[in-house]
Structures are given as structure tokens and as C-alpha cells.
Computed example of a mutant assay.
Amino acid sequence: MARKLLYQTLKDKGNSHIVRRDGPYPCNWDNSWLGEGYYYWDTFINNAHWWGVNRYGAKYFICEAYCNYDTENCLDLVGTTEHLLQFSSAVDLMKSKRLVNNKTTVSRILNYMKHTIGVLKHQAVRAYGINTISQNNPDYNEFNYKLVFEIGKQQYLDYRPAIQICIFDKFGLGLNNYNLIYPHEYNEDYMA
């Protein structure tokens, strides 16, 4: 089990005291990528800033927290090939039942795994949204962490990938030390 640093980006509504007291907050969007839960950016704070700038403009909070990460409790669709095979098997099963079409989302597959066939018993899901920060985004250069392997070729290494973790319950994965860290004036530990 590893201690993992996470970041949650929220709209700054001038309610820093409430965020500190009541956080973390669930994502309640109908189109949330990984289903219902509490969304965090994994390890790289630049992704939390990118989301804040693109979603909320100049008025956003970033809260950090830690979790106890292991692949027994988190379905890891980033680096655990066995979990990718399990996800792929669910897609194949849904295809065999004609439940997949060109509008099928990752969230729908995860929901099927969790509620219909009962194989998603994890506390969280971890995924890398490829092209989350697209080159067509006006803030691309500020948040570009890609290096090519060969000059003139398209293949690249994203060395600060936009990995998200969706924790299904508020304090799943032993989430702890939830703290408002940005803007710095709200961070109790910040020294100007």
C-alpha cells in the first residue's frame, strides 16, 4: 500500500471556511467520466490548475489530500494490465449482449461492472484521460508536459499525465489530511 497525493479542484465561491470544514465534495455531473464519486487529480498539481483555469477561470480552490493506494482497492486503468483485461472483458460481454454502441462511455461500462455483473468491488477507479488537455486548448503550452521520442515523429511521453482517481465514498481509500492549499492566502501553512 502506498500513500498517494491527490488534488481536488473546486469553484471558489468565497466559502473557504466551508470547504475546509465540509470537504471533499462529490462530482454531481450527469456525464462524469468514471461515474459517481469524489474526483481527484493524481499526483500532479498542474492538472488541478489546468482544470481550475479551464472550468472556473481565475476563481478556483485546490485542496490536497492523501489516500492509501493499492490495486486491491482501486481499479487501476492506468498501469495494471490485469485491471485493463477485466475492463476489456466487461466491454466484450456488453458487446455480446448488444449493449455497446458508438455512444457507450467508460462510465457506462464501469456502472455495468459495478451494478449489473458485480465485478467492480473496488473503492475507486483510476484512469488517464488521453487528450484531456488537447493541443487545441488555448492554455495548452502552459500545461504541456509532452516530449517526443524522435524528432519529426508523433509518438511522445506525457510526463505529467492527466490521471484522475474517482473515490466512490467520501473517505474511501483511507482519504485523509484534506486541506485547502490554493489560492495561497487560504492555505494556513503558506508563508508569504
Rank of each mutant, 00 (worst) to 15 (best):
3 R>Y: 01
7 Y>L: 02
14 G>H: 03
15 N>M: 09
16 S>N: 10
19 V>Q: 08
20 R>A: 14
22 D>S: 12
26 P>M: 01
27 C>A: 14
27 C>R: 04
34 L>A: 05
35 G>P: 02
37 G>V: 03
44 F>R: 01
46 N>S: 13
46 N>A: 11
52 G>F: 04
58 A>D: 14
64 E>Y: 02
64 E>A: 06
64 E>T: 10
67 C>F: 05
71 T>A: 11
71 T>C: 08
74 C>A: 11
81 T>S: 11
92 D>Q: 15
93 L>R: 14
95 K>Q: 14
101 N>P: 10
105 T>R: 02
106 V>I: 15
112 Y>V: 03
114 K>G: 01
117 I>Q: 04
119 V>I: 15
119 V>R: 05
120 L>G: 11
128 Y>K: 12
129 G>E: 08
132 T>S: 11
135 Q>I: 13
143 F>K: 01
145 Y>H: 12
146 K>L: 10
160 R>Q: 12
161 P>A: 04
162 A>G: 08
165 I>N: 00
167 I>S: 04
168 F>D: 06
169 D>S: 10
170 K>E: 04
170 K>S: 04
174 G>R: 08
176 N>S: 14
178 Y>W: 04
179 N>V: 00
180 L>H: 06
183 P>I: 01
184 H>K: 06
184 H>N: 15
190 Y>A: 10
